[in-house]
């Protein structure tokens, strides 16, 4: 479970987050919508321990991440629109590197399984620089879940994907959701975001301004709410 309380992040005079409170239950899929500059990526960077908040607290499974970063990081997998993969290493070498960083047991077998799962088994020994955007994103998922994290954080994962690759990503996320992973995703993609998540929030100017169950919303009704809230925020 992730508990965020009164989270505040300032970059000099700019307040990126202004007192965020969130509770994400174990196995829940939360999608954060919001316009550019709303502080969504900042929120995920704090949850993933990349940056420290100016004030406020984040607890992951009862661990305060400000005091136990290394322990918290073992429980987290991050997928961004950037791959965090090395172009001059093969898909397998990249996964071997990250797997060893996380001390994944029986790593060779785990890599074989993951590459098969993301449909890249036939490209295991190819250099990552030769991969298409969609393939890169699938390998990114394999990289992020290689250590079987309980929490998966996704920052705009649909950026730059064509429809086919986006559908594949949605299906992979649905599968991860059934494996009882706690998932937090930021996106501009209302259709996919609503389809796969349990709960949705809208973040504007560093604050959560709307929260609901995804099942209560259709794409049309949510778009109305979204544009209304974004309009209010300006």
């Amino acid at each position: 479970m992730i508990e965020v309380s009164r989270l505040w992040k300032s970059y000099g005079p700019v307040d990126a987050l202004r007192g965020i409170d969130l509770k994400i239950e174990k196995g829940e899929f939360l999608t954060v919508f919001g316009p550019n500059g709303a502080g969504k990526s900042t929120l995920l960077k704090i949850l993933s321990t990349i940056i420290k908040p100016t004030s406020g607290k984040v607890n992951i499974d009862g661990i305060d991440i400000s005091s136990a970063n290394e322990d918290a990081r073992k429980r987290i997998g991050v997928i961004s629109h950037k791959a965090f993969l090395y172009g001059n290493l093969s898909a397998k070498e990249n996964l071997l590197f990250f797997g060893r960083l996380y001390d994944v047991p029986d790593l060779e077998k785990r890599i074989e399984e993951l590459l098969a799962e993301v449909g890249l088994a036939h490209r295991a020994n190819d250099m990552v620089r030769t991969f298409s955007r969609g393939m890169l994103q699938r390998l990114t998922i394999a990289r992020a879940i290689i250590h079987n994290p309980a929490i998966i954080l996704l920052d705009e994962p649909y950026t730059g994907l064509d429809q086919h690759a986006a559908r594949m990503l949605t299906n992979l996320l649905k599968k991860l959701h059934t494996e009882d992973k706690t998932i937090v995703m930021t996106t501009h993609d209302i259709t996919n975001g609503l389809e796969i998540s349990d709960r949705i929030v809208i973040q504007i100017l560093g604050k959560i301004v709307f929260e609901d169950r995804s099942s209560n919303q259709t794409v049309e009704s949510f778009e109305r709410v979204y544009f209304e809230k974004v309009g209010e925020g300006k």
Binding site: S48, T49, I50, E70, D71, R73, K74, I76, V78, S80, K82, A83, F84, L85, Y86, G87, F98, L101, Y102, R143
Partner: peptide, 18 residues
């Protein structure tokens, strides 16, 4: 520069290594 491409530095920072 190697770590800047595809934001690999963030990948390293996410690992459970000080």
């Amino acid at each position: 520069v190697l770590e800047k491409e595809e934001d690999c530095m963030q990948g390293l920072m996410l690992s459970p290594l000080d």
